[in-house]
Design a protein around this nucleic acid. Sequence first.
DNA 1: ACAATAGGCAACCAAAGAGTTGCATGTCAA
DNA 2: TTGACATGCAACTCTTTGGTTGCCTATTGT
Lengths: 109, 109
Amino acid sequence: MPRHVDKVFKALADPSRRELLDRLHANNGQTLGELCEGLHMTRQAVTKHLVLLEAATLVVTVWRGREKLHYLNPVPISEIYERWIGKFERHRLRALHQLKKGLEENSYD
Amino acid sequence: MPRHVDKVFKALADPSRRELLDRLHANNGQTLGELCEGLHMTRQAVTKHLVLLEAATLVVTVWRGREKLHYLNPVPISEIYERWIGKFERHRLRALHQLKKGLEENSYD
DNA sequence: ACAATAGGCAACCAAAGAGTTGCATGTCAA
DNA sequence: TTGACATGCAACTCTTTGGTTGCCTATTGT
C-alpha cells in the first residue's frame, strides 16, 4: 500500500471531518465559510480539519480570488475498499447494502 | 449512518490494527498468539487492538477451548465505500484501481 | 494433579489530537 | 485607497490513545 494511506485513515477517523466530507458529497465545491455554517466549532478548527483532509487527498482545493473552493476526491476511499474486500465478496456485499438501505431509515452520526 | 460507524473509523485509524486486518485477510481464523508472532509489541497491546476491532465488528471471534479464533468481517468496510462513492463513479474507480495494481509494485505500510 | 500454555484485567505513562484565542495576510468593492 | 471580508499561522490547553508492566484466570496434556 502507498505511504499516504495512513493520512487517509487518520483523516477519516474524526466525525467532524466525515461530516465535512458528507457536506461536500451533498454539495461539492464549497468555500471554507460555507463549510463552517451551522457548525458547533470555530472557523480555525474547521480549517485544521480541511488541512488534514487535503493532506490525505480526500479533498482537493482551488483558489478563486480570496475564496478557497473545496472538492471531494473519492479515489482514496475506493482504495480502502479494494484493500480488504475479496473479488467474490463484492456481489454479496453490494446486494446486502441495497437491502439494508431499503430497510433502515437514517439516524446519521 | 448507524451509530457504530465511529468505532469502525477509529479502529481503522491505527496502522497496527490495519496490519492485523491484513494478516486475517491473508490467513483467517488465527489465535491471539499467532497474530502476535513477529510483531514489535507486547501481547497486551495486540489484545487491546483486537478488542477495538471486535467492538467495531471488523473482527469476529470464536472460542475453541483456551484459544480465541479471530475472523475478518468485511461488511463495515463495504459500508464506508457505499457512503461516499456515487453510483456512477464506481466503474471508473474500479478500472483505475486495476490499472494502478498493474503498474505499481508493493511498498506496503 | 499440576506445570505449561492461552488469554484477561488494571494501573500507569508519554505522545498525539481536537479545539480554543489572538494576530497576520491578502483580496474585493465602494 | 481603505474598510470589510476570506483565509492563514502560532501558541496553548485538555483529552484521547497506544503502549508498557505486573498480576490473575482458565484450559490443556502428560
